[in-house]
Amino acid sequence: MSLLGPGFLLSAAVFATAVLLFLVAGFLLTPVLQTRRQITEQLLAQGIKSRRSLEAQTELTRIAARRPVEAYFKAIEKENSQPDALEAKLFRAGFHQPSAPVVYIALRIGFVVIGFLAAYVVLSNLLPPRLPAFLTFGGSFLLGLGCIVIPSIALDRFENAQKQKYRRGFPDFMDMMLTCADAGMSLEAAVERVSSELAGTHKALGVQLAIMTLQMRAGKPLRDALRELADRIGIEEARSLAVLFRQSEELGTSLTEALRVYSDEMRTQRILRAEEKANALPVKMVLPLGLCVFPVVLMIVMLPVIIRMKGIFF
């Protein structure tokens, strides 16, 4: 029991954390250094010697925009062979680095180790010493094992945050598509132009549209590319747009008019969502008002009365 005291476990936790941080830093820095060397070689091959020149900055921006696209195609290849591939889920959550799966697995292991050691230190100090040691060890093991879900929950939150980014940028995408269609551009050319324009304002949606553009260049029909776009970003607006395009092609109706009607519906839905959040705000403000504001107001109101009663009664 003396060998597994709180001091020993604390030292073990510090050592395990240091090793974990060293491994994570190694997995993160090695791909970064390799990528930096490859970019330098590309710039030198094009005759650009300084990374600070305007040509170099333009080329670096272009390379940075291509990285998520290349990461997607690598992830989709693995997803075809493994339907529940971790790389595809990490890509949907916005992590495009090649070392992201290794870092994710290392974080899960690290949370288990740190949770176990922290729980053991706490339980050994709180529980009576007469209890058997295996109860403390077993409880710490269960609590540490429960910490394995923390990275999964964080990954789901990142994925939901990406969906919110897509949802905020989708109305702008529809407006720009409608403008390009009114100008006489084909829908394929409109998607390519809009994807380049949205890369600066809505980067996440611009990356997905760039992937869709490459798929259409490879010969995939527009409605199939839209359906896969809806599957990638996972929002209802994209699925409705894919269904709208398929029905317009099957029925022979005007796609421009369909886009205009759907764009108006999306604006109406955005207004309704804003009104829904505004109506829910008073209910959400009840708890902070009751805990923070109401005691202060009560103190300000009652303090003069208490001071006057002090002079009269006591």
Rank of each mutant, 00 (worst) to 15 (best):
V19A: 14
E159Q: 14
N160I: 13
F111T: 06
E257T: 07
L251I: 15
R157H: 08
A204V: 11
A45I: 02
L29G: 02
F294W: 07
L21N: 05
V191G: 00
A190S: 01
E228K: 02
E276R: 11
P129F: 09
Q57C: 06
L244N: 05
R108I: 06
L54Q: 10
M177S: 01
I76S: 14
L241Q: 03
K74L: 13
R223K: 07
D84S: 12
L20S: 15
R51I: 14
E237A: 14
G47S: 04
R227F: 10
A118V: 12
R67C: 06
E77A: 13
A25M: 13
A225T: 13
L123N: 02
F245A: 06
S248Y: 04
G5C: 07
A161I: 15
I233R: 00
V207D: 10
A238Y: 01
G139L: 15
A181E: 11
E197Q: 15
M266I: 13
V191K: 00
F137N: 03
R130Q: 10
A25H: 10
R130H: 07
L205Y: 00
M174Q: 05
V14H: 03
L142H: 04
L155E: 08
V122A: 14
G47Q: 02
S248V: 13
F294V: 15
L9T: 08
A274G: 06
C292S: 09
K89S: 12
D182K: 07
I271W: 08
M285R: 10
A106G: 11
V32R: 10
A106T: 12
L259H: 00
L126T: 13
E249I: 04
L214K: 13
F73L: 10
N125L: 15
T201Q: 10
I271C: 07
P128G: 12
G7R: 06
V194S: 00
S248E: 12
G146F: 03
P132D: 09
R217L: 03
A65N: 15
S2C: 06
K277N: 09
E55C: 05
L205M: 02
V286D: 01
E192C: 02
A204Y: 11
G5F: 08
L60C: 09
V32G: 04
G311H: 08
T201D: 10
A71E: 04
F22C: 08
V305I: 11
L60D: 12
V305N: 08
I312G: 03
V19H: 05
P132Q: 06
V32P: 00
